[in-house]
Design a protein around this nucleic acid. Structure first.
Length: 504
RNA sequence: CGGGGCGUAGCUCAGCCUGGUAGAGCGCUUGGUUUGGGACCAAGAAGUCGCAGGUUCGAAUCCUGUCGCCCCGACCA
């Protein structure tokens, strides 16, 4: 396995993605169809994401709680649109006991059929609003701002590691408010939190805005999203925030008494991001050498590679590496790394050649690599390599060891910025304005990308475009120019441009 | 659920057409030599050939069934 190069993006983009996931040890397919095992290297990235997001949720007034995995089947039926949207992909629990059958092993005990079948949550609105009914009586109980970190199951027909799996990890925020305005504010606030997380931590530029009617969450009045462009120019829905109106309050009879003494239904939002973000992270930054991680989400920030031929040399370079590690970790901490120390690993695997070790570290996406060999030590220096410029090109030679910690600290911040800038330049270069449907059809096929086009706002036209081009309306960006025009398909009036793209 | 492909060592795969002792490369283990961009030598461990049945003196190989995986399509807030 080691020693082999990964498939290049130009050769086969899907295979490249799978190679990165495999070789960087992020996840693998499990014995259960459609379900992945998240391996330690992959889970460490998720933990970093969780930490940053959780802090942002707390800062906006939310608290965590936990609701059950199982949902009575009848709950799903209470909100009609949701039932319709999710019915086709629900796993159902029908029995609560097995029995041992001599000669046949273990079988489901037919005597142990559940009176009411349970579905495994595809999302938790129903069980949560059923609970909120008991929690909300007065306007003084509002707003209720709750988040949960959980797993959900959606029985997908075709799965891809991280991007679409039958079971995945996510967070789902579920809030209740006294007024429509407050709930809409919350919906907007949380999509902005997602944007900030995507751009500041993942270094992944996103478009922000509502989904079209055809693409919104079932049960929502409207859905806001962040939408990112991958390196193959396909779109990835990276996070969604839904304004649910009073749909769930009505379905579960959640009323409160207002200050004026009236009984009113509560207003709801829900919002979520998932382990899919890891797929987005990979496809935004990684290259043909392997994974590239933005420093703020990298589990290891710096790998030090001591180089030496014999015990005497090795002892000296390892000592220098340890001293450097201590000096880096003693740097003052700030918000950039969440007030945590810079993570430094020392790679003492002298049995492998230095070249092999450099390549392995690049493959794993570590942002900064430091090389310390006898030649460096002779002049009290080291070599610093940056992952965003792989190979020898990114090496800074002869950095004095005394200066190295400060240089590394600055470099990590620079890499974070440069990854974002590079991704944004790439995205912007493939963000086109297009007024002719014929031109759109040709370009979406030949070059791909995001296309800002006029659309008449109807479901029929959206469906027609999807059927003919496999492209969907990804987002109606908030910052689109207020520029009325005519729909490129039907010639009917359009209020402004929407973003069309093929997507994951 | 339709169309195509594939199940042989941890991984990638050859062997199957034309039945006759289970193979290679990588990885792994041990020992030695190496080490500044994917080192080398030697020895070694490792496989119910997806599963079940059938044909045959004899099946990885032929036949039937079955399970699983991958790709394309349908589906996907």
């Amino acid at each position: 396995m080691a020693g082999e190069k990964i498939t290049t993006r130009a050769e086969d983009y899907s295979q490249w993605y799978l190679d990165i996931v495999n070789r960087a040890g992020l996840s693998e397919n499990s014995a259960v169809r459609g379900c992945m095992v998240i391996k330690p290297n992959g889970y460490a990235i998720w933990e970093r994401m969780q930490r940053a997001l959780d802090r942002m949720f707390k800062e906006t007034g939310h608290v965590n709680a936990y609701f059950p995995l199982f949902i009575p089947k009848s709950y799903l039926a209470k909100e009609e649109e949701m039932a319709e949207g999710f019915a086709k992909e629900c796993a159902v629990v029908t029995h609560y006991r097995l029995k041992s059958v001599p000669g046949k092993g273990i079988e489901v005990d037919p005597e142990a059929r559940l009176e009411e079948e349970l579905i495994i949550r595809p999302t938790s609105e129903t069980i949560i609003w059923n609970t909120y009914k008991n929690w909300i009586q007065s306007y003084r109980d509002l707003p209720l701002l709750i988040n949960q970190w959980a797993n959900v199951v959606r029985w997908e027909m075709r799965t891809r590691l991280f991007l679409r799996t039958a079971e995945f990890l996510w967070q789902e925020g579920h809030t209740a408010h006294a007024t429509s305005e407050e709930a809409e504010e919350e919906t907007r606030r949380m999509v902005e939190v997602y944007k900030q997380f995507a751009e500041d931590y993942m270094a992944m530029p996103v478009l922000v805005g509502p989904k079209s009617e055809g693409q919104k969450f079932p049960g929502a009045v409207y859905t806001l999203c962040i939408e990112a462009m991958m390196q193959d120019k396909k779109a990835l829905q990276a996070g969604t925030s839904h304004f649910l109106g009073q749909n769930f309050a009505k379905a579960f009879d959640v009323k409160f008494q207002s200050a004026q003494g009236k009984q009113e239904f509560a207003w709801a939002t829900s919002w979520g991001v998932s382990t899919r973000l890891i797929g987005g992270l990979i496809m935004t930054h990684s290259d043909d050498q392997g994974l590239v991680l933005p420093p703020r989400l990298a589990p290891t920030h710096v790998s030090i590679v001591p180089i030496g031929k014999n015990d005497e040399e090795r002892k000296a370079v390892v000592e220098a590496a340890q001293k450097l590690k201590a000096a880096i970790q003693a740097l003052p901490r700030d918000d950039f790394f969440g007030y945590e120390p810079i993570e430094v690993k020392i790679d003492t695997d002298f049995d492998k050649s230095p070249g092999f070790r450099f390549n392995e570290i690049e493959l794993k996406g570590v942002p900064v690599r430091v090389e310390i060999g006898p030649k460096d030590l002779a002049q009290n220096a080291c070599v610093i390599g940056r992952r965003d410029i792989p190979g020898k090109d990114g090496k800074l030679m002869g950095i004095p060891l005394a200066e190295a910690p400060a240089r590394i600290d600055a470099l990590l911040r620079e890499i974070q910025k440069s990854l974002f800038n590079r991704a944004k330049a790439y995205r912007d270069a493939s963000l086109h304005t297009c007024d002719s449907y014929a031109e759109f059809q040709e370009r979406i096929e030949k070059e791909g990308g995001f296309f800002l086009c006029h659309w008449d706002g109807t479901r029929e036209t959206e469906d027609k475009i999807a059927a003919e081009t496999k492209a969907t309306i990804r987002c109606i960006p908030f910052d689109r120019p207020a520029e009325p025009g005519i729909c490129m398909v039907t010639g009917k009036p359009s209020k402004g441009r929407v973003v069309l793209a093929r997507s994951y």
